[in-house]
């Protein structure tokens, strides 16, 4: 049984309990008083299908798919406007990140959303060396829609790339290696352990 099916069976019609038990800072959702301050705070506000306020309402209303399959959380720029304004002091940014990451873990995140894709490339790029290789990160972003689209995209930004190189702010040799941590195996073992602890807990919750 997939983790998603197991969670559905376990929490039948009690989505807020599922969120409280499994999503980063999810227990805070109960504290929302629907005042709407956060809804007006997101810089990409027009692009949100559901504002944070609506998402919290939908969670209470058991609209599990509508929340987890939404691309709304993926529009969060982590600007922290909402956090400093919310009268109930909900850690809204973290809940948005938590819902996004939970949806991705369950395989429900919208595949065509570029930010959910970028976050994965970023994380994997970083895990290889312990530090981010900006050039590879940029290139994989161009080539996300396939080779032909990638060439077009890279051409469109060619002048920018050349300028960055001239200003010595983009090192072409980075593609061959670049910066990284020395104790890479320690770092990777540490992350593996952290992931194992977390996944075991999720699986236990799903039983």
């Amino acid at each position: 049984m997939s983790l998603n099916t197991a969670m559905v069976e376990k929490y039948r019609n009690n989505f807020i309990k599922e969120v409280a038990g499994n999503v980063e800072e999810g227990d805070w959702v109960r504290m929302c008083m629907q005042c709407g301050v956060c809804a007006g705070s997101c810089p990409l506000g027009d692009a949100w299908e559901h504002t944070p306020q609506e998402i919290f309402m939908l969670i209470r209303a058991n609209k599990r798919d509508e929340v987890l399959k939404s691309d709304s959380m993926w529009m969060c720029t982590s600007c922290y406007n909402c956090i400093v304004r919310c009268p109930r002091e909900l850690p809204i940014t973290h809940i948005m990140h938590g819902l996004a990451s939970y949806a991705k873990k369950l395989g429900l995140a919208p595949k065509e959303n570029p930010t959910q894709w970028f976050t994965e490339v970023f994380w994997e790029n970083m895990m290889k060396k312990g530090r981010v290789n900006e050039l590879k990160l940029g290139l994989s972003l161009y080539f996300k829609d396939g080779f032909a689209a990638g060439i077009k995209e890279a051409m469109a930004h060619q002048k920018l790339g050349m300028n960055m190189m001239k200003a010595k702010r983009m090192a072409p040799m980075e593609i061959l290696g670049g910066h990284g941590v020395n104790d890479l195996s320690g770092l990777q073992k540490m992350i593996k352990k952290a992931q194992d602890i977390e996944n075991e807990r999720l699986e236990a919750n799903a039983k």
Partner: peptide, 21 residues
Amino acid sequence: DWNCCSASIGYGKGSVLPRMS
């Protein structure tokens, strides 16, 4: 030997505990 913190974008793939670590 400092490492990347994963910024405000690693969250989608890296959940809480890996990021905190």
